[in-house]
């Protein structure tokens, strides 16, 4: 998977690039809007990471130019501004997701992986059944079983588990869960998400030998078979 990072702070771009290379991506860097636009247009990247504030041509205008040319590569917007307004503006300019600077690397990586996965599953039609090991979720009858045993979930718990199952094998952060399961674009001071996760874990993992829902320290959660 090949990514393009358009970020004017060279040292921040390099650090981010190193992290993404360590995570298994190949990475191109651009430090201003015009160069970024050219590289994005001429390259075959799977995803663009675009900073909003760039010298010369700003990130949103670069993205808009690319979208106007019919380029559909997923784009993740980086912005130092950090309010809902900018998020909406970023998404309107053709961004697929948005991260506020200064960001945690794990947050950015989780969102990149979620975006790439979304693109891969595009066009595969709506799923009616999600499965991971012996955990099965029927989206039509809205029922969940593990090893054939019925698990009773509240509507929100169902939604939470559905999001985790759709991103199985991938780290999801607290912020991603708040945005996608509760539709809140801010982080409360209380550990509300952690407590909901621990209740869900009680229901899907407690009476079974293999735990599926794991905490990734300092990052978030991952649903997978291996610990």
């Amino acid at each position: 998977m090949k990514l393009l990072i358009i970020e004017d702070d060279e040292s921040a771009a390099k650090l981010l690039g190193n992290g993404l290379v360590e995570a298994g991506f190949s990475v191109d860097l651009a430090h201003d809007g015009e160069t970024g636009l050219r590289q994005a247009r001429d390259g075959d990247h799977d995803l663009w990471v675009i900073d909003v504030m760039l010298p010369g041509r700003d990130g949103l205008s670069v993205l808009k130019a690319l979208r106007d040319q019919g380029r559909r590569t997923p784009a993740l917007i980086l912005s130092a501004l950090g309010e809902v307004d900018e998020r909406v503006q970023g998404l309107r300019s053709g961004g697929d997701d948005y991260v506020v600077k200064p960001y945690a690397f794990v947050e950015l990586l989780a969102r990149i992986e979620a975006l790439l996965r979304r693109v891969r599953s595009f066009g595969s039609g709506p799923e009616t059944m999600l499965e991971l090991a012996d955990l099965r979720m029927d989206l039509l009858s809205r029922s969940v079983t593990r090893s054939g045993q019925e698990i009773d979930l509240q509507p929100r718990e169902f939604h939470l588990l559905e999001y985790l199952m759709r991103h199985a094998g991938q780290v999801v952060t607290r912020t991603m869960l708040l945005e996608n399961v509760w539709e809140y674009f801010f982080d409360p001071q209380t550990n509300v998400v952690d407590v909901h996760i621990s209740r869900l874990r009680q229901k899907i993992d407690k009476s079974f030998a293999t735990p599926l829902l794991h905490t990734v320290r300092g990052s978030g959660y991952i649903l997978r078979v291996e610990p």
Partner: peptide, 10 residues
């Protein structure tokens, strides 16, 4: 109601 539901476990 949603916000109460979000905070009850905490």
């Amino acid at each position: 109601e949603e916000l109460i539901e979000l905070y009850i476990p905490s």
